[in-house]
Computed example of a mutant assay.
Amino acid sequence: MSKKENQSGRQTVVNYGLYGESYEPRLPGFVHSELHETRCQQHGWVIRPHMHTNLFQIVLIDSGSAEFTHHTETAQLTEPCLITVPADVLHGYLFSQDVKGLIISLSDEYVGKLFPESPGVLLELSRMHLIRQSTDPAAFRQLSELAWQIHTELYADRPERGLALQSYIGLLLIAVYRLGEQRLQDELAVDNRNVRYFRQFQQLLKENRTADVPINPLSISAYARRLGITSVHLNRVCRSVAGLSTLQLIQDELLLEAKRYLHHSSYSIAEIAYLLQFEDASYFSRLFRKKTGLSPKQFREQQRTTSPAGIDGESDKTNIDKSSITELARLES
């Protein structure tokens, strides 16, 4: 094995051929497979963080469990899964003693020669993949069967063994590539749906200003029902597109309206709270101060100081009917 050192001379990364063996470059056609218990038991079921300079590995866990470390991240593997680990990736395992499965090691050159005209496949395989049985049972079953066929073929004395191995390994790696591509397409589809929902949500916020029967502006569930999704789903949409929760976006929209009223009308603070459907004017004032650092009164005075001509309306307006509210909101939108 070899060890990389940091500037202080401390050993930081162990570089193995196969784990526990001295590092040496592998032949271009190197293919190796072994059961987990063959090597893990020798090391107390602990495979410490390490990396392989020119080996691509396929790790199959059929039963048992493991803690998988990848760079600084840790994943608990409590169900059957398959992991692909490209070369030069720091990784380690803590296996349960009842773990069953195998690990296949391939030289980088071997993988490259399988797909000489398919750079997209090689690019996808340069990323680590974790495929759990529960995520796609059919795909996992196919991968597991191919991994065991590779293992069996490697140790069987059969004609054209090399050709058979190329076929099985190629099929397994193509299956991993396709899963990666499908996941990317699914993520793009989710992103597109999220953007559509988010734009519809924004439109609802605007339309709610002048609606004859407006949505309670602080009711996330009411907006979600109008969109045909759950409140949890709407919150995920808002966070994925805008990086803010649904409540934060609703509050920001309400405060924008509040600022317009404070700047362009002479409605009292209580009247503005009523216009914005706050049941409690004091809650409106607290929220406004929390978001802006100023009370509504201080904000209005500040606006008058900087733009005295910006205030219109009558100062003695105290009785607000529905038509005046709707008309003012329409003019302000």
Rank of each mutant, 00 (worst) to 15 (best):
Q97P: 10
V99N: 03
V99Y: 05
K100R: 14
G101W: 01
G101P: 02
G101M: 02
L102M: 08
I103H: 04
I104V: 12
S105N: 10
S105L: 08
S105H: 09
D108C: 10
V111N: 01
V111T: 07
V111Y: 00
G112T: 11
K113V: 02
L114P: 01
L114R: 03
L114Q: 10
L114V: 08
F115P: 01
P116I: 03
E117T: 14
E117D: 14
S118E: 11
S118C: 09
S118H: 15
V121A: 04
V121Y: 01
L122H: 06
L122F: 06
S126H: 07
H129K: 09
R132D: 09
R132H: 14
Q133V: 05
Q133D: 06
D136W: 05
P137C: 07
P137W: 00
F140Y: 11
F140H: 12
F140V: 07
R141L: 10
R141I: 03
Q142K: 11
Q142M: 10
L143G: 04
S144T: 05
S144I: 01
L146G: 00
L146P: 07
Q149T: 07
I150A: 02
E153W: 07
L154G: 00
A156K: 14
A156E: 11
R158F: 12
E160Q: 14
R161I: 03
L163G: 09
L163N: 12
A164W: 00
A164Q: 08
L172D: 00
L173M: 05
I174E: 11
I174T: 11
A175N: 08
Y177I: 06
Y177C: 06
L179V: 11
G180T: 07
E181I: 10
Q182E: 06
L184N: 11
D186I: 12
D186S: 13
D186M: 11
E187P: 00
A189V: 02
V190W: 05
D191K: 15
D191H: 15
N192H: 13
R196G: 00
R196H: 10
R199S: 12
F201G: 06
Q203V: 04
L204P: 05
K206Q: 14
K206H: 09
E207A: 14
E207M: 13
E207R: 10
E207N: 15
E207Q: 13
R209T: 08
A211R: 15
P214T: 06
P214H: 02
I215S: 02
I215R: 01
N216E: 14
N216K: 11
L218S: 08
I220G: 04
S221D: 15
A222L: 08
Y223W: 04
Y223R: 04
A224C: 05
R225S: 15
R226S: 09
R226Q: 15
R226W: 06
R226E: 08
I229M: 07
T230R: 08
T230D: 04
T230H: 06
T230V: 04
V232E: 15
